[in-house]
Design a protein around this nucleic acid. Sequence first.
DNA 1: TTGTACGCGTTATCAC
DNA 2: GTGATAACGCGTACAA
Lengths: 352, 352
Amino acid sequence: MPPMSEREPKPGRPPRAVDVAAAAEVSTATVSRVFNNPEKVAPAIRERVLAAAKAMGWMPHAAGSALARRRSSIVGAVIPTLDNEVFAAQVGAMQAAFAERGITLLLSCFNYNQDQAVHDVQAMLARGVEALAIVGEAHRPELFASIQARHIPYVVTYSHRPGSPHACVGFDNRQAFHTIARHLLDLGHETIGVIIQPTAGNDRVAARLDGVRAALAERGLGVRPQHLREGEWSIDFGRQSVRAILATDPVPTAVICGNDYLAVGALLEARAMGLSVPRDLSITGFDDIAISRQLDPPLTTMHVDNHEIGRRAADYLLACLEGERPAAMPPLVPTLIRRGTAAAPDLPARPA
Amino acid sequence: MPPMSEREPKPGRPPRAVDVAAAAEVSTATVSRVFNNPEKVAPAIRERVLAAAKAMGWMPHAAGSALARRRSSIVGAVIPTLDNEVFAAQVGAMQAAFAERGITLLLSCFNYNQDQAVHDVQAMLARGVEALAIVGEAHRPELFASIQARHIPYVVTYSHRPGSPHACVGFDNRQAFHTIARHLLDLGHETIGVIIQPTAGNDRVAARLDGVRAALAERGLGVRPQHLREGEWSIDFGRQSVRAILATDPVPTAVICGNDYLAVGALLEARAMGLSVPRDLSITGFDDIAISRQLDPPLTTMHVDNHEIGRRAADYLLACLEGERPAAMPPLVPTLIRRGTAAAPDLPARPA
DNA sequence: TTGTACGCGTTATCAC
DNA sequence: GTGATAACGCGTACAA
């Protein structure tokens, strides 16, 4: 048993590589190698160093490491809010994927505020993030400019606009809502209301509304002003909006909602008003959040795999960090989930 | 207009303080001061430095800064998962509170895996987090040991066990479920089922079950084995559990659920089975998640303000970082929300 | 295989 | 009010 020096130079302060080196009677270079290129050091010495490190609870300090290595091993995620399960799922999946590769995730929520988003990104760049994932592409130009100035890889998630200059992992919002509108049209609806999030400063939402309008236009139809309700995506706004829309003339036979939260509100309120869904009113959502399939009737919506989006975004960024130049990724396609809230108008749900 | 040197020493590489200093014709010390103690530098020079910095897009690099300052300005949050809106809310609130003070949040989800939690905490310590917030206190001893070895402040959230050695911001889970059980007992229920998350390795859940048992014991009652269902907190598990419990003998007149997800499942399934809630079966939840108040009937549950928990946890840690030694915080008290799913047994909801 | 010595980018101390 | 310079903790050529 070698005389392992037990001296701890500055008690009460976290140990440093020199301390471990002294304890193990090697140089700091060897300590560093043990942790970064273990195969390059003799097994006996390696054990000694490992033992010393464990004994004093040492682990390489990230700041020093980042400086020397010129790599922070940190990536940032910039999302609107964690209060929407859609973004929470994306972040969760990204975090898991990065953790596997020893990369930690910095999180920031900009609350749908573009200035906040710019600020958040800058703060992350200052923190030396090696890559960035950002929800949506409707951001101030300086946001992307400052990222590009740093030459670090980034992805836009939850959106995949054809022709976008950014790498993106998501789906075509316009196409998705075109699909859903077409579904209702094919069922025979001609008077369709829309309850949707604020379109201002939100590319994804604007694209959705655009998709609906395009689908209607193809049949010579349109969304009447009194049938369009724009507001925060909340169950409550969904509730008050159906109520408002059902009070207009002509009364729509179907309502397309910008996301499932709005649709859940619409469905619950319609039922509370004594309407039968889908006989009296068809309702569609988007995202397929957890509650949607549970309701009665279960919500017709489009399913988006947000864990998959998060994982893909992480994989893309990881590949970039490995020095690869990954090809542009094909868009995901949300799938229409025909459940119980959309049917042909003016007909009983199904004949007995 | 002074001859501002436009040379950018190493093109393609992020600028450093020396570059800014050269451009502004000052020393790096002054550059640093401009960004950290602006009042200590002459206005004219300050402007010059600011202009130069903005021109070349410089901002202090966090790793170097952390090293010199011996402060990382990073804190970590360790939670089970973002898929539960309860934890997502806590994280969101913490992130916002920290951001105001220029502190960034590192996130880690351990998925109810204790080994993962230990690993995550160690990784965060290596990253030099200055403080840590951790959900729950049922963790391996080495988790807390390694934090304490670093002498950094930490809080346990979402739990407040009397006598806990940790600073905690949360509520007394045992007390809360005692309250809810008592509520049902006072309504006249004597046969009560329980649908709850796995108690193994989860202090919060174990305390909840304990609270229920204690309340029943005070009336000489108990939870029959066939009336206790333990499993993942999901709407689906809630559904299958009521179904199973209702098939037992004697049939409970009420079911206490470990959280709202389970309760939502129980409620929806009971209704799907043709039961009238609360006439045929009373159901209670816990957490008061967003959907709970929206259902029909709205769920009787206990409200926990998770944004508040997150904010308080952040404030506590912030105070510690300021060098204060904040007093132990009183527990939050979840409030019983009497809505529509709990009533006296064997009676119509209310006489007309 | 191991050790020496320097650089990473910033801040703090101390002269001036 | 401002500048030189020494930390801060680690990784890594390069030399041995």
